[in-house]
């Protein structure tokens, strides 16, 4: 029961933090002109910042690393979504165009999730320790001696 409560608290914390960060970036976008520049902030890392901070507090760096790997795939889907949504919004209107383009994200994100287990470009970022320095080999140019 305590574990379930902890998970619910985690989700609620992420939701509240996400809402606050989205409002902060929306306020920044609100003050900007022209519209195209303000649109850049529609894809700000607001939800990501909020969620990763809460994740770090609960699961630590490994949880953040795994989330960031998933986010790489989601962001590729987001980019393709925008490229498809521009003509669709012009043709079908804002609501239907933007909604229909979600299908692109819906295909790209799961496909990338299955095909790229290490994240984008297979970037391996876990803290793999460097090999210990080896003593220099004592190769003195002596001929090898067979003992048998």
């Amino acid at each position: 029961m305590g574990e379930v409560t902890g998970l619910v608290v985690e989700v609620v914390l992420k939701a509240l933090a996400g809402g606050v960060f989205v409002l902060a970036f929306a306020a920044l976008a609100q003050t900007l002109t022209p519209k195209r520049l303000a649109g850049v902030f529609c894809a700000a890392p607001s939800v990501a910042l909020a969620s990763l901070i809460v994740t770090a507090g609960i699961a630590g760096a490994p949880g953040v690393l795994a989330s960031a790997r998933g986010m790489q795939i989601g962001a590729v889907g987001f980019t393709l979504y925008c490229l498809i949504a521009v003509p669709l919004v012009r043709r079908w209107g804002a609501w239907w165009g933007a909604l229909a383009a979600l299908a692109v994200w819906g295909v790209v994100a799961p496909a990338g999730y299955l095909l790229a287990p290490q994240g984008l470009l297979g970037v391996r970022t876990t803290g793999v320790p460097a090999p210990l320095p080896q003593p220099p080999s004592l190769d003195l140019g002596m001929p090898s001696v067979r003992l048998s």
Partner: peptide
Amino acid sequence: DVGGATFGA
């Protein structure tokens, strides 16, 4: 807005 969001994405 969507066009600008492409850069953000």
